[in-house]
Design a protein around this nucleic acid. Structure first.
Length: 265
DNA sequence: CCTATAGCCTGACGGC
DNA sequence: TGCCGTCAGGCTATAG
């Protein structure tokens, strides 16, 4: 579930709660969540420092500490952050706990352990190693770049949108939303899209991501024509009289409306 | 080269 | 009541 907009909301939460505070202690509660680093090395990389800035690329969040090390976080599908003071209000699956000297804590919670945490020293090296495509919200990722991505992939357009090596940040839920708002059927093959449809898809992608971020990624606050709050079997289409359908695309359940979303065009 | 699928992981839910 | 199968969807590894 944590896709680009969700992680952007996490970033802002991190910024408003955890920047510039002295890191008193670091506790790794689940070492399986660590990638290529020991609990000891993670601890010594950030302990005694302060977070000075954060960045986001796709679904990854990066927090740089004084001294240069960068804490890299991925949220899998159940990850989130919580800043709190009272230990009673700790989350049930806190895999990493950062204690600040002001008495507050930042927990990284991830029930299903599908997320990951590591420490890196160079952002661009990391992005390169992970073979991540451009961030979907990066202004430099413009229509020409988007068109190249679609031209390079032969499969279904939903698969292209979700492929992190092509575009970083879009997952199952928001690819469905983008396709629904653009009126494109998820099983449309990329090569069947007209120039006009590609342009609409591109501008819709940017607009949907921005709208979701502006609504703090809370589906209940999305515009009434949005699909996301209706992701359950047999739900009514928020735009027409029909009901939503599901189909498997790239092994994921895709929600769509046969009436509102056309193949091709 | 490319895309599709299985599996990791945990908890919720429905059927029997 | 309680057990089992299925599903959720982030990713990687492997099969096609």
């Amino acid at each position: 579930m944590p896709e680009l907009p969700d992680v952007e909301v996490f970033k802002r939460y991190f910024d408003s709660t955890s920047l510039h505070k002295k890191i008193k202690d670091v506790e790794v509660h689940t070492r399986a969540i660590l990638e290529n680093i020991s609990p000891q090395r993670l601890e010594s990389s950030i302990k005694g420092h302060r977070f000075k800035s954060t960045r986001r690329h796709g679904k990854y969040l990066f927090a740089e500490v004084t001294g240069g090390n960068i804490l890299a976080l991925h949220f899998g599908m159940t990850g989130f952050l919580k800043y709190f003071k009272d230990p009673e209000t700790d989350t049930p699956h806190d895999r990493l706990l950062i204690r600040f000297s002001n008495g507050y804590h930042l927990a990284y919670d991830c029930q299903r352990k599908l997320g990951m945490i590591t420490v890196i020293d160079d952002l661009h090296d990391f992005i390169k190693k992970k073979n991540l495509g451009p961030d979907a919200m990066d202004p430099k990722f413009d229509f020409d770049a988007f068109e190249e991505v679609l031209a390079a992939s032969r499969g279904m357009v939903k698969s292209s949108l979700m492929n992190q090596n092509l575009i970083a940040g879009i997952g199952n839920v928001y690819s469905d939303e983008i396709l629904f708002q653009a009126g494109v059927h998820p099983k449309t093959t990329s090569k069947d899209l007209s120039k006009k449809a590609k342009k609409k898809l591109f501008s819709t992608m940017k607009r949907v991501l921005k709208t979701v971020i502006n609504n703090k990624a809370h589906p209940e606050d999305f515009p009434s024509t949005y699909l996301t709050p209706h992701r359950n079997k047999g739900a009514d289409c928020p735009k027409c009289d029909g009901s939503l359908k599901t189909a498997k695309v790239s092994g994921r359940t895709s929600y769509y409306c046969d009436n509102c979303q056309q193949r091709g065009n």
